[in-house]
Lab assay of single mutants.
Amino acid sequence: EDPKKEILLAMLMVDKEKKGYVMASDLRSKLTSLGEKLTHKEVDDLFREADIEPNGKVKYDEFIHKITL
């Protein structure tokens, strides 16, 4: 499956209130437990690539855009 789609799906599952962003810690939890599970190192690399703080907010569109360039 398309990794971009899988990450967006994980974000939507976490963002039940439809705020347009999720906490990095919640996204990490989903990405390491769903679908093609990522390792913590892979998530760290994704966050670093997208300039996301480990305890920060992750906005869908910015995150998807940064990791798919």
Rank of each mutant, 00 (worst) to 15 (best):
D2Q: 06
D2C: 01
D2M: 08
P3M: 14
P3E: 01
P3W: 15
K5I: 10
I7W: 10
L8R: 06
L8C: 10
L9E: 15
L9R: 15
L9F: 04
L9S: 15
L9M: 14
A10Q: 15
A10K: 15
M11D: 14
M11E: 14
L12S: 14
L12N: 14
M13F: 04
M13W: 01
M13G: 15
M13T: 14
V14C: 12
V14R: 15
D15H: 06
D15V: 12
D15N: 07
K16S: 08
K18G: 07
K19F: 03
G20Y: 00
G20H: 05
Y21P: 04
Y21W: 13
Y21F: 09
V22A: 05
V22Y: 02
V22H: 03
M23W: 12
M23C: 14
A24C: 05
A24Q: 05
S25T: 08
S25G: 07
D26C: 01
D26N: 03
L27T: 00
R28N: 02
R28P: 00
S29P: 02
T32Y: 03
S33P: 03
S33N: 09
L34H: 12
G35H: 09
E36R: 13
K37Q: 08
K37N: 08
K37L: 09
T39K: 06
T39D: 08
T39L: 01
T39F: 03
T39M: 01
H40A: 12
H40S: 13
E42V: 04
E42A: 06
E42W: 06
V43T: 03
D44G: 02
D44Y: 03
D44K: 01
D45V: 01
F47I: 15
R48N: 08
R48Y: 02
R48I: 06
R48H: 04
R48G: 06
E49G: 03
D51N: 11
I52N: 01
I52V: 10
I52H: 02
E53C: 11
G56P: 00
G56H: 05
K57F: 09
K57L: 14
K57M: 15
V58N: 07
V58C: 13
K59P: 10
K59L: 10
Y60E: 05
Y60A: 05
Y60I: 15
E62N: 00
F63N: 02
I64R: 06
I64Q: 04
K66Q: 05
I67A: 10
I67T: 13
I67P: 13
T68L: 10
L69K: 13
